[in-house]
């Protein structure tokens, strides 16, 4: 077991190492951060000064090594734009992102459960199709449009819920729903096909034969097993949530990582771009790793299958 965990850990770290090079190069490809920092009247000398001050005059190799070396100790350098340690910015934003992702995840589970179960139990009927359409609808509209219409109607006109901010719980509902609905389709699909498989299995048939009530069969036996694939994809869910969140955060003025990344890219803030991408990737890797280890723990065969 330990060997398996270690091997998976090494794999994740290898992927992250590749990513450091990619993000380092990509960040620098975005252009010159000084165009946003220095005023129009800045002289050649001012540019040289600022370059030196911000450490941009060093060679790329030197910059890369210093970036990786510091990153290993949890230091991502200073933001070129905000002139503060990047780690402070991440500390400001990451909790907001995680909270929103957790809320969105809850929303999508709440929607996917009944839809997925209903669709599987009533497979092939109009109910099945209706459930699929409801789930897929969330994925068929651009999130920003859903968000804007929700803000206009629910917050602006009906005044039921706040339009922005992250201070109150009520502020979570609209962004959480927008984001959550977007991933319902995927989750519902997994639940439905998982359910179908399990409902067809010997052991559920046995439960039926033994006279277990149908709703108990469905809810307890089948659902428990159908949940596994949903857990498997937790990492992918998270990365989809974070990606989509850039848009949702912009509309709802939600101070999360996605918005930070957007601001960093538009202002060519290399250290922040690097830090956000690596943080996100590290979290996704961590989620995947935990899931894998959990599986390996449950099912020893996986340990050797690679």
């Amino acid at each position: 077991m330990l060997r398996f965990v270690l091997a998976r850990l090494v794999q994740s770290l290898a992927a992250l190492a590749i990513l450091t090079v990619v993000v380092f190069v990509l960040a620098r490809a975005t252009g010159d951060p000084l165009q946003l920092i220095l005023p129009m009247s800045a002289s050649e000398e001012d540019y040289a000064n600022a370059r030196q001050y911000l450490g941009l005059d060093r060679s790329y190799v030197e910059q890369y090594l210093s970036f990786v070396g510091k990153a290993l100790t949890g230091d991502f350098g200073n933001s070129l734009r905000a002139r503060r340690p990047v780690i402070e910015l991440i500390r400001d934003r990451l909790p907001n992102s995680l909270k929103l992702a957790a809320f969105a995840m809850t929303v999508s589970l709440l929607m996917a459960f009944p839809l997925g179960v209903l669709a599987a139990v009533r497979k092939g009927t109009a109910i099945d199709r209706a459930a699929q359409v409801i789930a897929v609808l969330g994925q068929s509209l651009p999130t920003f449009w859903v968000a804007i219409v929700l803000i206009e109607v629910v917050a602006g006109r009906l005044q039921w819920l706040p339009a922005a901010g992250s201070e109150r719980l009520a502020s979570y509902v609209l962004p959480g729903f927008t984001l959550g609905w977007f991933v319902v389709a995927g989750m519902m699909r997994l639940l439905r096909s998982g359910m179908l498989e399990v409902l067809d299995s010997e052991y559920v048939k046995l439960a039926r034969v033994k006279g277990v009530a149908e709703h108990r069969v469905v809810w307890l036996h089948a659902l428990k097993n159908a949940l596994i694939p949903v857990v498997t994809f937790a990492g992918i869910y998270f990365s989809i949530l974070v990606t989509t969140a850039i848009v949702v955060e912009t509309v709802f003025a939600w101070p999360g990582l996605g918005r930070l990344a957007y601001e960093a890219i538009t202002s060519r803030d290399f250290p922040v771009i690097q830090a956000v991408v690596l943080t996100t990737a590290a979290i996704v890797a961590l989620v995947n790793l935990s899931v894998d280890c959990l599986y390996a723990f449950i099912d020893p065969r996986i340990r050797y299958a690679g």
Partner: peptide, 16 residues
């Protein structure tokens, strides 16, 4: 390489 790619948010790459 696949893992590294998958962990790069697609929208960020497009923005860059």
């Amino acid at each position: 390489v696949t893992d590294a790619t998958m962990s790069f948010p697609v929208i960020l790459l497009a923005l860059i």
